[in-house]
Design a protein around this nucleic acid. Structure first.
Lengths: 242, 242
DNA sequence: TAGCCGCACTCACATATGTTTATGCTCGAG
DNA sequence: CTCGAGCATAAACATATGTGAGTGCGGCTA
């Protein structure tokens, strides 16, 4: 029914052990896999989905439109992320989800999720944890947005994405594929495209990163972390009983 | 053991019905009630609490400190809110929680929460929902911060706080008590105190609000909503099966 | 009753970031 | 092999918001 190295399982097992029964329940939860092309909506604001989307491959973003066509991206998603697990309980989507690249997406029916909550308390907590990490990332972004300079904010985001990609096995050494345009980065950071460009140049000139095409390389992790005031606590990368 | 009109129950019942057993489980979950004075920490960044704090009375804020002493508030809490329910699964606090006014706080041991997840699936979903709404608020703040003007952002925040206070019975007509300083509002919106002042004056001049001392009155709800581009969807105020 | 402290409020000035417009890659379509 | 679309980059200029320093009110506290 699904890929063997399900990146969600990879992600959850980083945080706590899963039993075989739990892993099976997760694998079986997937009802179908579909492909969404870049720039297409995966879920729309106002939708009331009866299934949640699990990103198997590709990059996606949650976003909200605002008057005069401006857009804010409130989350960037990498393989292994649930894109709208929260719609299971929130019911109505208060934002849209967009494919930034071609995406492979698994559907998990809400009925199945409800069954999991009835039968697998620990697995339920792990799914809950998954949404809590999303929340922690939101808080971190709020802090970066409100109180860091544009440059620091960008450095922070790069640190985070690098680590998140690494956890799901998408880093090769210090390099990750990051197929995101500067305009999309602007919508993520709350900046104009022009300023995103300025800020990236600065990080390059400082010898912190290389970013050509889709390929992002961390040249000086320690200094990049320092510039972005980054600490990874909020990503809950420790394995412990939950 | 506790106050009869538990504001958490009030809040949850707005979103879905609770059984008597569930309400009892919630009431019994409270191990003790304590009082924290204004400007004191309720939980500190880095703590690993073994209980979560439920705010019974008062105002509290989650915050993060950044280099050069700047502070960002990532959440404002009103009675009925869990301040760190997420620490049940995230384990390590990635931010602090501060009392803005004198606060009455109920403690709910994590062991009890774990038992609830084992025995009360629906109640578990409701607690999960509670943290999902926190997340939805974070996303909304991100959008407002990144893509709205300072004035619109302030209007948005005021709309949200008014509604949230109303839900837990703390509004008298169009007026709520909001004992928050302009400096604290600045840390919430990512603005300087001076600019908070400018923006409040503008909202007053426009005849949208009155805000003297702690007393905030909405003078023109429709126009305030329009200025802040506010829609309440993200607060999940509908009652439905969850 | 005096004095002090926190807070709202002001003004003049500084600057980070936005806007507009334009150029020139690069890569895929045909 | 050429063309065009999308994207990164650039420069000049505009502005929302920050900074620093100060006033004055109102309510505690001694």
């Amino acid at each position: 029914m699904t890929c063997m190295t399900n990146p969600l399982i990879l992600k959850l097992e980083q945080r706590d052990q899963l039993s075989d029964a739990e892993k099976r329940a997760l694998e079986n939860a997937i009802s179908r896999v579909r492909v969404v092309e870049a720039d297409e909506d995966i879920v729309r604001e106002g939708d009331r989905p009866n299934e949640s989307s699990l990103l198997l491959d590709g990059f996606a973003a949650r976003y909200k439109l605002v008057s005069n066509g401006r857009r804010q991206i409130s989350a960037l998603h990498v393989p292994g992320d649930f894109l709208d697990l929260h719609s299971f309980l929130l019911k109505t989507m208060d934002h849209g989800v967009l494919a930034l690249t071609t995406c492979r997406i698994a559907a998990v029916p809400h009925a199945t999720l409800e069954k999991i909550t009835d039968e697998f308390p620990h697995l339920t907590r792990m799914l809950w944890l998954n949404t809590l990490i999303d929340g922690a990332i939101h808080r971190e972004w709020l802090t970066a947005m409100g109180r860091l300079s544009a440059t620091a904010h960008m450095a922070h985001l790069i640190c985070e994405l690098y680590l998140r990609l690494k956890v799901v096995g998408r880093a090769e050494g210090d390099t990750v594929q990051l197929p995101i345009t500067q305009a999309e980065l602007g919508d993520t950071l709350g900046l104009s495209t022009v300023h995103v460009n300025r800020v990236l140049q600065e990080l390059r000139k400082e010898g912190l990163i290389r970013f050509q095409g889709d390929s992002l390389t961390i040249l000086d992790w320690e200094r990049l972390k320092k510039v972005g005031e980054f600490t990874s606590t909020y990503l809950s990368l420790q394995n412990e009983h939950r």
